[in-house]
Amino acid sequence: MHTSFCRLRPLFLLLSFSSYGIIPAAPFTGTYGINYGRIADNIPPPQTVVSLLKATKIKNARIYDADHSVLEAFRGSGLELMVGIGNEYLKEMSLNEERAVHWIRENVQPYLPYTHITGIAVGNEVLGGSDQELQEALFGALKNVYNALNRLQLTDYIEILTPHSQAVFANSYPPSSCTFNENILEYMKPILDLFLKTGSPFFLNTYPFLSYKSDPEHIDINYALFLPNPGVYDANTSLYYDNMFDAQIDAAYAALEAAGYGKMEVRVSETGWASNGDEDETGASEQNAKTYNFNLRKRLAKKKGTPRKPKLVLKAYVFALFNEDLKPGPGSERHYGLLKADGSISYNIGFTGLTPSHSSSSILYFKDILIGSMVIAYTMTSTACITALVLVLML
């Protein structure tokens, strides 16, 4: 096939999808996703990552940029991918809708529909931070990205989101008392109004590990790890919480309801537990990380809601796929990975497709397949080679 046709075909098919009313893929299949961070110099290439995700049966992945090598690797995989626009682009994008259009045309549109890009996370933990100019720019950037998607007829396929940290809340205990910080409401409300219009969820980064680390004397480690414990009773709602994760989600629901957005879905953009850290990072251990992530996976697999929203199935992106050895900050930042750099599991949380030795041998297996294919191709006629190449590209 000619290169020019290959570049045009995804857009052509996407427009055909729109013309014939084919229902787009859901933005989140099932309940379990993974954050695929890449601030590291020792992790596998994107093509191997796709194989690892398929082995673990994880269908939803999120990256923090729109790296073209990742987008290309996910092409034809059937996996759903969320891309990100970094904080460093928000101020410029808030002032210029054309900049948002250009970004989508360069980083999203050429890969559709074969790379299933289902969402764009605009910024990360902007509100609640210390950069007021960035806070002021967030809504404009979100609006321009949405308008750009609308102009390109992609709003039925791709949702816009922005992840928030728990710093946007004034308090969270008991869960029913949670409200947004007064100083961010002027920035938060227009965003929530936009998300009501677009049907986007409230994206929340929530870490029981960080809560426990900050106050280990008063927080029961078993409550943070989904282990048997006395739990917490919320007298305002008569709801009982046997784990901190559910309580933190319901705190966000309470804040949304108090602000007038009680019907908005809360989706977890990040959660996880560090397997190691600095000496003062209480609770950072491999055993605790294994316990939290194993129990979190079981909890999400039940496809249930929280005590406050029992019928709204909770969905979460876990942090993270790999340990990222180049991440700045405390030691825990480099120890959230479910997999090691060689693709083997860090600890067993029930991924039946991977074992400590299976992943490494799989990589060698794929290499053997590739080498074998090259040997076979060498003996084929040129016509047969072209035919084989076309078949491979269609996979």
Score class of each variant (00 low, 15 high):
Ser16Thr: 00
Gly343Tyr: 03
Ser177Lys: 08
Ala40Asp: 13
Leu393Arg: 12
Asn107Ser: 09
Asp193Arg: 02
Tyr212Ala: 07
Leu138Pro: 09
Leu339Cys: 03
Ile104Asn: 01
Glu106Gly: 01
Gly329Val: 03
Pro46His: 06
His218Trp: 07
Val318Thr: 14
Ser362Val: 00
Ser357Phe: 11
Val122Ser: 01
Tyr32Phe: 15
Phe17Met: 09
Ala25Phe: 10
Leu185Asn: 02
Val168Tyr: 02
Val101Pro: 00
Leu321Val: 10
Ser51Ile: 00
Asn205Cys: 09
Ile158Ser: 06
Leu225Lys: 02
Leu185Asp: 00
Asn236Ser: 10
Lys367Arg: 15
Phe74Gly: 00
Ser373Glu: 13
Asp65Lys: 06
Gly84Ser: 07
Pro46Phe: 05
Phe180Gly: 04
Ser94Gly: 11
Arg99Ser: 15
Glu265Thr: 13
Gln135Pro: 06
Ala55Tyr: 05
Gln248Trp: 00
Leu389Trp: 06
Ile39Arg: 14
Glu97Cys: 09
Asn229Ile: 08
Gln153Val: 11
Leu196Val: 07
Leu142Ala: 02
His164Pro: 06
Gly305Trp: 03
Gly37Arg: 00
Leu154Asp: 08
Glu80Leu: 13
Ala258Ile: 01
Ile158Lys: 04
Arg267Leu: 15
Gly353Asn: 06
Glu106Ala: 10
Thr48Gly: 02
Asn60Met: 07
Leu210Ala: 13
Ile58Ser: 07
Glu279Ile: 15
Pro113Lys: 13
Ile191Leu: 01
Leu15Pro: 01
Lys311Asp: 14
Phe245Gly: 03
Glu136Trp: 00
Lys263Pro: 00
Ala259Glu: 11
Glu72Thr: 14
Glu133Leu: 10
Tyr212Asp: 09
Ser77Asn: 06
Leu79Trp: 06
Arg7Ser: 13
Lys304Ile: 11
Ile369Cys: 13
Val122Ala: 01
Ala274Tyr: 12
Tyr146Asp: 05
Ala316Gly: 11
